[in-house]
Amino acid sequence: MSKLIRAAFYRYFHSILFYVCLALSLISAAVFSYAVRRDKEMYAGLLLLQSLIYAVLLSVTVGGEASGGCKNKIIYGYSRLQIYFSELIAASAVVSGIYLFYIIFSFLFNISTVSQTPVSLIMQSLLGFYCISLCICALCVFISFASGKTIAAAIICVILVFGIYITWEPTETVLNKSEYFTVYTPKNGAKDESGQPVLQGVRDPDDEDMIEVKQKNPEYVGGFARTLLVLYRDLNPYCQLKRYNAVLRPYFYTEEERRHANGLISPYLIDAGYLDTDITEDEQKFLDTAPLYPLAVTAVTVPLGALLYRKKKFR
């Protein structure tokens, strides 16, 4: 199989697309660093760009192999599993290389931020994003072999990446809706003209005739649908990015910026929690478990893809 892996590397390193993707990663790293410095924010759009780089590079390269190149290898006596895993290993190595390239340049561009962030936090975050990268890689290899056509694979991979991106915010919004909300109604049960109880969202502090009532939020999603949404949120790399952002964001500020902000911002009026470097229990749990989700997707995708390719008929 090592010969197949070497052949796969040869294809990557002799492809213009590989160097274009490397250059785009460099630009992406520069934009990431600029955003962190200027806006103190890791934007989801940057992860989208990096995911698209992986998706296009892998679907075109692996898709090209799956759509025809592999025929010669089967004729030479290699098994389909050897071909699938050699492509997967080579793709993972290429993604790891680009990821490392991205990280090195991001660190170089942002050396001050990195130096003030605890090493353990950096390592946990890097591991999390690396697992996301590997997951995207496994998905792209799976799609490329399953579709068997380069263009189809590229389109499906790009749609998948975009699909995950455009659904992360609505998912968060739906999940953030509370199950109940508080309203106020007169003690005497007064009703309006249509015969419905009088309800108001804000109570006049002087009005003692109003009582607090908890009302079910009709937009709240509960039950099994909520379980699925929570799972999807945990799996969604952009939702993960948002949570990594919450943990890392305080370190995007320099000591001076933090002192300055603390001096100006009144804790009673404006929430200055984003400057708090203490990691909550929830955040720690997230940091510990976040890599498991992409790894779980990878663990399902890889054997499924290999099995499908093994059974695939060449027409």
Partner: peptide, 27 residues
């Protein structure tokens, strides 16, 4: 064995020599 089934399986974004080299590496 060497074979061409229906149409040759080649890497279009590479040169002739590079195509042969890939096969040589795979073999």
């Amino acid at each position: 064995i060497g074979a061409i089934i229906e149409k040759p399986t080649l890497y279009n974004d590479m040169t002739a020599a590079q195509n042969l080299k890939i096969q040589a590496v795979a073999l």
